[in-house]
Amino acid sequence: MLKYVIKRVLMVIPVMIGVSIIVFALMRVFSPDPAPIVLGQHATIETIEAWRDANGLNDPVVTQYFKYLTGAFKGDLGTSYYTKTPVTEEIFARFPATIELAIAAIVFASIVGILLGVVAAVKKNSIFDAAGSLFALVGVSIPIFWLGILLIMFFSGYLHLLPSGGRIDVLLKPAEVTGFYMIDALLEGNWEAFGNALQHIILPALALGMYSMAIITRMTRSSMLETLGQDYIRTARAKGISEGKVIGKHALRPSLIPVTTVIGLQFGSLLGGALLTESVFSWPGIGKFTVDCILKSDFPVVQGIVLLVAVIFATINLVADLAYATLDPRIKYSSKKER
């Protein structure tokens, strides 16, 4: 097990190097020269050249890359051209906001998706099944930003139930310990702040999680239908245990095996979706920040974010695989012989 994890972690390194080469090249080919943007329109050629020298942009690209790579291995991703703050700091300041949103979205998507999927499968071809399928269809087809705007219009504009943007009321902001406001609020024992943060996260989490919810619903339904036709479900019924146990235990558990993989993949893609959601809901996370930095050609920051996202993807995949193996006893990490 530990051997397997180490192997998987080591496998991430070549992926990271590949990813870093690609972003590095892309930024230098397609992004406008950052110097005039940083220094302003009226900068002289000399100041610009001096700035480029200082930031190593006049070196050959290969040299630039190796400098970057050696720095990265030491945990130094450079500093932002604008704020002069280390990239890692910039990222970690915004990172919890994004993760908090993504977790809220995936929790919503998993719970609702699995529930709807199970109901649709158990009540196959009924009105519940049809409604679930329709809901799932809407979920996969609706664009995030459009859904986001609809949600804001209805729940905050019309019903005045929920806030339209931001993470929390400034006055209620808890002291940052983890950076996850809901957790920080709980650590402080500040229920008001917790409730406020919760209210803020509902709409963006709905908007962001809708697509994944739909995918998880479909996956659960088909997986569940397959399981329900298995001989061991008949065995379970023949034992005389309650139907709730037959469905909730004997059918659900094997059905969740493929669903976990989907949830893992969806969590990865949520980080992409966060880009749009964060912009619509002015959620101060990585997504919104990335958009800003790309527009400003802030090379070190964009490179750092992309690397980080690659690490996150690899981690999520690993976690999903481990969860998969916990659910399915037939999977073995090592080549241990079967009896």
Binding site: A236, I257, D328
Partner: peptide
């Protein structure tokens, strides 16, 4: 009841 299919009549995950 004992079923015809011993290979598939037990739940693989328990």
């Amino acid at each position: 009841m004992i079923f015809q299919e011993p290979m598939t009549s037990l739940n693989p995950v328990f």
